[in-house]
Design a protein around this nucleic acid. Sequence first.
DNA 1: CCGCACATGTAAAGCGTTACATGATTGC
DNA 2: GCAATCATGTAACGCTTTACATGTGCGG
Lengths: 182, 182
Amino acid sequence: MAQKNILQYIILGLLDQEPRTGYELTQDFAHEIGEFWQAQHSQIYPLLARMEEQGLITHSVEVAGTKLEKKRYSITTEGRSALSSWVGAPTPTMATTKDEFVLKLYFVQRADDARLPGMIREQIAIHQEWLDHLEARRQLLFGDENVPQDQFGHYLILDHALTREQQYLNWLDQQLTQLPHN
Amino acid sequence: MAQKNILQYIILGLLDQEPRTGYELTQDFAHEIGEFWQAQHSQIYPLLARMEEQGLITHSVEVAGTKLEKKRYSITTEGRSALSSWVGAPTPTMATTKDEFVLKLYFVQRADDARLPGMIREQIAIHQEWLDHLEARRQLLFGDENVPQDQFGHYLILDHALTREQQYLNWLDQQLTQLPHN
DNA sequence: CCGCACATGTAAAGCGTTACATGATTGC
DNA sequence: GCAATCATGTAACGCTTTACATGTGCGG
């Protein structure tokens, strides 16, 4: 019910690239993957335990310093097979976007509403900052490379996120300039 | 916690336009607003009761036929004030997107993966259908009108959704043609 | 030695979907 | 009469976020 544990497959995909600790997975969600899926450590740690029970992953313990134990998880054959059938399966459900700002716009009935310019400018600032972050990230990871053979998937989704943000900003700019007496 | 009951404000916004029954609100989510937020009747009816307890809305009973009682809800002064401060408040959180397809792309490491063309074509079909639906909707609601003074918010978010879908489709098309030996 | 990042968990609560449940109205 | 739609609810379950909780390692 609810949704269908997509998070599990994301974790499998990440562990398929290389073994990781729960903490490192959490970082990935905070940075890399965060454009397309969000998850906190409080969701990740219990899920890792459940996935290990199901035989999708295993872990080995690393000791850092003198005491600190890290659990480094890796994907099993069974896990690799589950990942593969997820990727190969049809994806009939569209992306769901929950955009609070756009909803607020819906309830602004009149084009001359005094709040509109401020609301739009606020969003422009937020999305501009995000776009800058994404561009820096692409530069860092791929430089001026055009279409890398390696890490192709990563390149793809960064490109997707960049295109999306650029379009969102364009749209906001356009709406701002088209407002009455502005 | 979790999220901050945005649904509540959407309902207030809809009731601010005109009084509605729970059933009608459910229809609105299935059609109008469904592009931007989803909600089932099982979430709506309990929330209406809670909102009435809080004094944000009230209802009067209509009898259809001989027995069937409908509860028609309307917004109160208090509700109108809550709605207004929501719209006026900053919206610091960006839209969150959950896109299962793009995630799958992330885990396709190589550009020559045999599954890619099929995966992308499937998404093109889905998004094309959605775009057609949105265009029909704009035509129906606004015809060839350019920027309506009335229903401005509705026009805005429809335009936003259209722009977004168009960009998504462009991106998919571009990726498909740029695949190796294709 | 202090602060920040690293590292791993659990608890509580709300959000959201699917399923269960019931009955009335309307048009054919 | 029968089916589709109108109309209103509850229950169960899983997903997601926020908060609570604890301890180690490392660099300045």
